[in-house]
């Protein structure tokens, strides 16, 4: 019976005092938008802010090395991007003329791999793609999320919003119900966040690893007992775009530390 003692105790911890969502809100008011890091314990927030001890930097380091190293058949990323990519990640996902679709940062990095380096695209969630994505995202640390959902990105944004607002899975819950309508409330030992992606790729304690936003979305879908989409699925890219637009103005935190 011992293992149930913890669960009982959690139920007794009083709900924390985060502001309640407005009645029937389908959007979070701009002044209430907050990063997931405010729902962490002080110790975990300290770990995120420690740019030595934050384990996400193990991937950032690796990404930096890969960024500077020439692949077999092309030039190193750094050859073109000598000045770095400060602020760039904060504008992704973005509509890409050449691809004719919305690309997230992973997709944009792979586009460079294929078109400029004549290398095969890295597999989604591979060590290499995660590391380079983390390295590029980290160069926008502190920059405000600023994605553009006008023009050809509009339809994709709306597809992402639809996914976010649709009930799914055996629990019949939409993303919206937890992360827009009930954020700040307690669910077992956790406080529901607003579901922003500004910290990704992020080091999740539960993963004991860095992971992409798509890995997080898959976990959310599995959490409500829904069939998750494959990594890199265009619909997840659409959700990513919707989430980014929803968090425009929040500071980029990758590699953030999350539960």
């Amino acid at each position: 019976m011992k293992r149930f003692a913890g669960a009982t105790l959690i139920a007794l911890i009083p709900a924390c005092s985060a502001p309640p969502a407005a009645e029937n809100a389908t959007e979070i008011a701009a002044e209430d938008i907050v990063s997931g890091s405010i729902f962490l314990t002080a110790e975990t927030r300290d770990l995120q802010e420690d740019n030595f001890a934050n384990p996400g930097y193990l991937w950032v380091d690796r990404g930096e090395a890969l960024f500077s190293k020439a692949p077999a058949s092309g030039e190193a990323c750094i050859t073109c991007h000598e000045a770095g990519l400060s602020g760039v990640a904060a504008t992704y996902p973005a509509y890409d003329e050449k691809a004719g679709r919305v690309l997230n940062l992973e997709g944009r990095i792979n586009q460079c791999r294929v078109t400029h380096q004549s290398e095969p695209a890295w597999e989604y969630e591979s060590e290499e793609l995660l590391s380079v994505t983390a390295f590029v995202a980290n160069q926008s640390l502190g920059a405000p999320v600023s994605v553009d959902v006008s023009g050809p990105a509009q339809d994709i944004y709306e597809a992402g919003r639809d996914y976010f607002q649709t009930r799914r899975g055996q629990f019949n819950l939409s993303c919206q119900q937890c992360h827009t309508e009930n954020w700040g409330k307690r669910l077992r030992g956790d406080t529901l966040s607003q579901g922003h992606g500004n910290g990704f790729p992020a080091y999740r304690l539960e993963w004991e690893s860095l992971g992409s936003l798509h890995r997080r979305l898959r976990d959310c879908d599995l959490g409500v007992r829904a069939e998750p989409l494959p990594y890199g699925d265009p619909l997840y890219v659409a959700v990513e775009l919707f989430l980014a637009a929803r968090s425009n103005g929040l500071e980029m935190e990758s590699p953030a530390v999350r539960r």
Binding site: F52, A53, P55, L58, E208, S209
Partner: peptide, 8 residues
């Protein structure tokens, strides 16, 4: 301080 990448 010493940090190493390992899944443990």
């Amino acid at each position: 301080k010493a940090l190493i990448r390992h899944p443990m």
